[in-house]
Amino acid sequence: MDTVFLQALTLRSVIGVRPWERSFAQRLELDLSLSVDTRNAAARDAIDAAVDYAALSERLTQRAADADCQLIETLAERLAMAVLEDTRIESVELTLRKPGAVPAARSVGVRIIRSQSEVP
C-alpha cells in the first residue's frame, strides 16, 4: 500500500468547551496520511485516477469551517469520515492540532486512524 500525505493544513473552526473559545473560529492544523494504491494514477498520469489532495484540502477546510464542535476528537472523527468518502482511500491517519490551547505547550491535539471498514 502507498501513502499520500498532507502536512500542516491550516483550518479554522469554532471549537472548544469554554464560552470564550466558542466566540470565534480558532486556528487548527491538520496532518493526513492516506493509505491508497497509487499504481493506477501513476500508470495513467491523470488527476482523475489519483487522490486530488487540492480538492480534498478544500473539502476539509470547508467541513471544519462549517463545524461547531466542543471536542477536537469530534472534529477529527468528522474529518476522517470526510476523507473516507473517497473509497479509493483504504485508511487515514489524521492528526488535528490546536496550537496555543495550553499556554505552556506549542500545541495539543489528537491522532486517530480510521479505515473503510469503519465507515457506516
Rank of each mutant, 00 (worst) to 15 (best):
P103Y: 00
S91W: 13
M81N: 08
L79T: 03
E85V: 02
A46R: 15
S115T: 14
A64S: 11
L56C: 09
E29D: 04
Q116S: 13
E73K: 10
V119K: 03
I112V: 15
E93Y: 03
R12Q: 14
G109S: 03
Q62C: 00
S91G: 11
R27F: 05
S33R: 15
V119N: 00
V108N: 05
D68P: 00
L96F: 08
R114W: 13
A50Y: 15
E77Q: 13
R44E: 14
D37S: 09
R12D: 02
F24L: 13
A8W: 06
V14R: 13
L79Q: 04
M1F: 12
T38D: 05
P120K: 10
A50E: 09
E29K: 12
V102A: 06
T87S: 10
M81G: 01
K98Q: 10
S13Q: 04
E85A: 10
D68T: 00
A104T: 08
E85I: 02
D37E: 06
A105H: 10
L71Y: 00
E90V: 14
L56W: 13
T38E: 08
R114K: 15
A82I: 00
S115N: 14
V102S: 02
M81W: 06
F24K: 11
A54S: 13
V83P: 08
L11Y: 10
I112Q: 03
L30R: 06
V36K: 04
E90C: 05
D52A: 03
M81Q: 13
G109H: 07
I113P: 00
L94F: 12
E118R: 10
L30W: 10
S115P: 02
S117E: 09
G100V: 09
A46E: 15
W20A: 11
R97C: 03
R22D: 02
I15A: 03
C69M: 08
E77M: 02
M1Y: 07
S23K: 11
E21G: 06
I72D: 08
S23W: 04
E85D: 12
A41R: 12
D48Y: 11
L96W: 09
S57V: 04
E93R: 15
R111K: 14
D66S: 01
A54P: 01
I47N: 07
A80C: 07
Q7L: 06
L11G: 05
P103T: 08
D66R: 08
